[in-house]
Design a binder for these strands. Structure first.
Length: 299
DNA sequence: ACCGGTCCCTGTTAGC
DNA sequence: TGCTAACAGGGACCGG
């Protein structure tokens, strides 16, 4: 699934391949692709055609390409199955796949394809708004602005401008469970179900721990360990994935080799050998070690 | 302001 | 074998 490491891999690929290119034509298909744009697909096409792509930026799981006027951007969210693929100039003219949602034709004959099976992803061309703290809006640009739909998204764990101490304090002020807090993109962004479980395992915390019961050292530890998981996944993604291809079926080498608990019900905990347990969590699943991560007492 | 539940969607897989 | 149901997931949205 495209979470922070996968989206960052995509961003870096875009930075290498499409910056400086001008959009010569835009084809948007499917009723959901432009659903976040007030004017719909026609508005996306109108705002994008003829523009030049000047920077590739990311915050959390949101990625955007700055356009040649510094007041808007092409915003992309990959949802749970989205891909951005660069088609080189003069590449074989294959028929568009059933899941092709948009194609940007570029002035060197290449194309940027947005492919999305489950349609949770979307494209939009929103206005930019200033960041409250005046710091750069995301990784990949010094511009102190973000697309309007990203304004409420917190900085992510790999953001150089993140205030880690303030985040740990904010985490402890929440009145919820620690896993819910890790997944709350308005508190800290980029963490999904997989990396939340892996970070909690590394920090030896159960996801149901009330945030206001975390000791300061525990709050710092779960943030540090989750950041470490993200960095390790990013490093693996950089080596095992093709330039702009992230395998949404999860078949990458990193997932096979490095995941400690996620998706591993019944398999031994890498630390103590106890079989990994699976529990229902918010209409999905949580994986943890029963011994390393004891369930907190109900308060 | 904060918190938790629901819904959006479709391909794959498990179970009957 | 063929069908149905569960499952995967992020975030907008809404009610409390």
């Amino acid at each position: 699934m495209p979470e922070l490491p996968e989206v960052e891999t995509v961003r870096a690929g875009l930075a290498r391949h499409v910056l400086g290119r001008t959009v010569t034509a835009v084809d948007v298909r499917g009723p959901r692709t432009a659903r976040r744009q007030a004017g719909g697909a026609a508005d996306v096409v109108g705002r994008l055609t003829g523009r030049t792509l000047t920077a590739a930026v990311r915050r959390g799981k949101f990625c955007w390409l700055l356009l040649d006027e510094p007041d808007d951007a092409l915003l992309v969210h990959l949802g749970m199955s989205g891909q951005l693929r660069v088609r080189p100039p003069a590449s074989p003219d294959e028929p568009p796949g059933t899941h092709l949602r948009a194609r940007l034709s570029l002035d060197d004959g290449s194309a940027l394809d947005f492919v999305d099976q489950r349609t949770f992803g979307y494209l939009a061309v929103p206005e930019l708004v200033p960041t409250p703290d005046g710091a750069p809006g995301g990784l990949g640009s010094d511009l102190a602005a973000v697309p309007a739909p990203v304004a409420h998204i917190a900085r992510d764990l790999l953001d150089p401008a993140l205030d880690r101490a303030a985040l740990a304090a904010a985490l402890r002020r929440r009145r919820t469970q620690v896993k819910r807090a890790l997944l709350d993109q308005t508190l800290v962004s980029g963490v999904g179900n997989i990396y939340a479980d892996e970070g909690l395992w590394r920090a030896r915390l159960h996801g149901a721990r009330p945030t206001d019961s975390l000791r300061p050292v525990e709050a710092a530890r779960v943030l540090d360990e989750t950041a470490a998981v993200l960095r390790a996944a990013l490093a693996a993604g950089g080596t095992s994935f093709d330039a702009l291809y992230v395998d949404v079926d999860g078949g990458s080498g990193w997932f096979e080799r490095e995941l400690a608990v996620y998706g591993r019900e019944g398999l031994p905990c890498p630390r103590c050998g106890t079989p990994v347990r699976r529990e229902a969590f918010a209409n999905r699943s949580s994986y943890s070690c029963p011994r390393c991560q004891p369930r907190p007492r109900v308060r």
